[in-house]
Design a protein around this nucleic acid. Structure first.
Lengths: 242, 242
DNA sequence: CGCGTTCTTGACTAGAATCAATGCATGTGG
DNA sequence: CCACATGCATTGATTCTAGTCAAGAACGCG
């Protein structure tokens, strides 16, 4: 973890929702107080259960938040990208991190200690409001996924997960829209509360129907419209006798 | 919705986590700006999908937050009690309420508009920190339940829900610990992502084993230890050959 | 006392988990 | 450059949890 000086992060930082509407001197102060952290692929920013002491803003890369049950089952709570906050929990409470954060690509982030961030929030209240905003957004999304998990079938949950990932990390290619990150069947299973076998069957099925094409840790969406139909359970467009 | 004057809420308000550590003049200002709202059992504070404009702190009663899917399935996201914040989302964003809030007992609350609460947070940053704190607590709880739903069997989920409710609204009686609110099988089903039939079977089973006694919209926990064993899947205390 | 809820129970079904075997890529080291 | 080890993916067979549907019982309210 470097102390300043390091490449001036302000251009990137200015984008992040956390810093919107802050007076310039606040930005300067925060950047000065920040540390710079690089985490290579497959390494961790922080571990579930450790005392929450550091708060990050992701600059580059992608990070996935996971929880493990006492029995060892893993669940992927979310995947974060540039601009997202990591360990928001820290800003306030004397708790432990509720999740682990693993870089699934080489990543860089700015880091602050809990004390610093709290201090700054008291000094620049807009920062606290922005923090709440970030947290609230994530909260609402989690609520939606909770409801999904409680009420919907596996296939639809997987469809939604794929659409979410496309929105988050989609990249146009001649083939279709590629989900631009390593994404195994196991990963999808852990995002949707199912097993890797079931995900594999579902993707095979979709592939046969031409909706996606898949490879090792790779998913390309070809007919997004039809996937949306599955995700939302719209009536089939072709009129069939039942 | 009354404007002041109404019974001075300060004694109760002072308890709420939202107001900890605020200077006294802040408390005065907030109480002066508050409106007082009474909602009888089975009526709603707010509805999912409406623009989020009002923020509440519950003074008395119990409120349940529900989400409905487009298909009409309902999910109970949480049950709130006195001191909890309702519509925290409001504090910041131009969004709609993500859930509906129904009073399951006659309830009273203090109410602020979005503008007021934002204003106050800018003026008294500690208020914003406290708000984040509330939100973060709920966030972590939701994450845990999400993981439960993704990885655990129905019986265990129901066991956990019952234990949570006991913690939240438990009341000692000669019979055991009563969950002191109306609680139907349907409600438990909507909290745990299952059906009322399955909940009924599970409770019947537990009742036969003497773990609980139940009635119409009533659950009394008799042997909490054994329910914990189910909830945590500890090994059975009696050594059995398999 | 009748009516509307809520709850119970049984029979049946289906969706998805589990288990097991095998096939493919990918990267490694001889 | 090929053989191999490893990790990821596919597929089939089987099991089982929990959902669905249907009928009726019990409770509490007006």
């Amino acid at each position: 973890m470097l102390k300043p000086p390091f490449p001036d992060p302000r251009p990137q930082v200015a984008q992040s929702a956390l810093f919107q509407g802050l007076p310039p001197e606040a930005m300067d102060a925060l950047c000065a107080a920040a540390a710079f952290k690089e985490v290579p692929r497959a390494s961790y920013f922080l571990y579930q259960g450790e005392p929450a002491t550091v708060f990050y803003i992701l600059l580059q890369g992608r990070v996935r938040l996971t929880q493990v049950t006492p029995e060892g089952h893993q669940v992927i709570v979310t995947v974060l990208g540039p601009g997202d906050g990591l360990g928001i929990i820290v800003a306030l409470s004397q708790t432990n991190y509720p999740v682990s954060a693993e870089a699934i690509e080489d990543s860089t982030a700015l880091a602050w200690t809990a004390a610093t961030i709290q201090q700054s929030m008291l000094e620049y209240p807009q920062l606290a409001l922005n923090g709440m905003n970030l947290l609230a957004r994530r909260f609402v999304e989690l609520q939606d996924r909770f409801r999904e998990l409680a009420t919907e079938r596996v296939e639809r949950r997987v469809a939604r997960a794929v659409l979410r990932l496309v929105r988050q990390a989609g990249k146009r290619t001649p083939e279709g829209v590629l989900i631009d990150m390593p994404l195994s069947r196991q990963d999808l299973a852990e995002m949707t509360g199912t097993t890797l076998y079931t995900v594999s069957r579902i993707l095979s099925d979709w592939e046969q129907k031409g909706l996606v094409s898949t490879g090792r840790e790779r998913v390309v969406l070809r007919k997004s419209h039809e996937l949306v139909i599955i995700a939302e359970d719209l009536p089939e467009p072709n009129p069939t006798k039942s």
